[in-house]
Amino acid sequence: MKNHKMFRVILLILLLGLLPAAVYAQSDPITDDEVNQVAKDVYCPVCESTPLDVCPTAACADWRELIRTKLAEGQSRDEILEYFARQYGDGVLSNPPRRGVNLIILWILPVLGVLLALLLFSRMLRGLRAAAPQSAAAPPRPKSSTGDPTLDDYISRIEKEIEE
């Protein structure tokens, strides 16, 4: 019985000892690097071409503070990005989610473009192959052969010119 009571006291002391550590862990400040890891993939509509992590405007500073607050609340990077997309539109994300118009413009259209290019390329190749035998079938041959292909070619061209 005495041992049991002693065990409870020790357990209580241990738990009390852990409490400051838990409190410290919760109040551990979010670093700028952690904020910027999320902010680099966000663009605020006020300064469209500048990522949030390097944008100097007051609006972007507010957005970064919001990221810091949400990280401190324990939200994940994806949850924060989803919040920004919902609040300010998909256009604020550097990698917009695959839905709606984004799906068409960023995913379906490029695939269609590649397929179209492949199709056109294959048709062009087929056309070249079909034309090749015709041109190869009519090489001008000289009336007499010297045995030297270069000379034969030269003579045949002269003969052709004389005939014309």
Binding site: I108, L112, L119
Partner: peptide, 8 residues
């Protein structure tokens, strides 16, 4: 081919 052209 035509579907792709029209879509684009």
């Amino acid at each position: 081919l035509w579907v792709a052209v029209i879509a684009i």
